[in-house]
Simulated assay, not measured.
Amino acid sequence: MMTLPFLLFACGLAAAWTRRRETAMGFWVAGVLMLLVLFRMHVADVLNIAL
């Protein structure tokens, strides 16, 4: 699940490589939004590490 933003960034790079500027910007915006949402979901999680 945490790899989805980076997959979107890679799709954005591929779209930019093929000169599809609007599609590339859409992928990048979606990647940033997904990264922010996932960060917001996991920012308050407590890591229970039992030694």
Rank of each mutant, 00 (worst) to 15 (best):
M1T: 03
M2R: 07
M2Y: 01
T3L: 08
L4W: 06
P5A: 05
P5G: 05
F6I: 04
L7H: 14
L7V: 11
L7W: 10
L8C: 06
F9N: 01
F9L: 04
A10H: 05
C11V: 09
G12H: 03
L13G: 01
L13P: 00
A16G: 12
W17D: 07
W17A: 07
T18W: 01
R19A: 02
R19K: 05
R19H: 02
R20I: 06
R21E: 13
R21P: 05
R21G: 11
R21S: 13
R21V: 12
E22L: 11
E22K: 11
E22G: 07
E22H: 10
T23N: 04
T23P: 00
A24D: 05
A24M: 09
A24I: 10
M25N: 11
M25P: 01
M25K: 13
G26A: 13
F27L: 02
F27A: 01
W28Y: 12
W28K: 01
W28T: 07
W28P: 00
W28D: 03
V29W: 05
A30N: 02
A30E: 07
G31W: 05
V32M: 14
V32I: 15
L33P: 01
M34W: 08
L35C: 11
L36M: 06
L36Q: 01
L36K: 00
L36I: 06
L36C: 06
L38K: 08
F39V: 09
F39A: 11
F39H: 12
R40I: 11
R40N: 10
M41G: 08
M41Y: 11
H42F: 13
H42S: 15
H42G: 15
V43M: 10
V43S: 12
A44Y: 15
A44P: 09
D45L: 03
D45Y: 03
V46A: 09
L47T: 03
L47E: 06
I49T: 13
I49L: 12
I49C: 10
A50S: 10
L51Q: 12
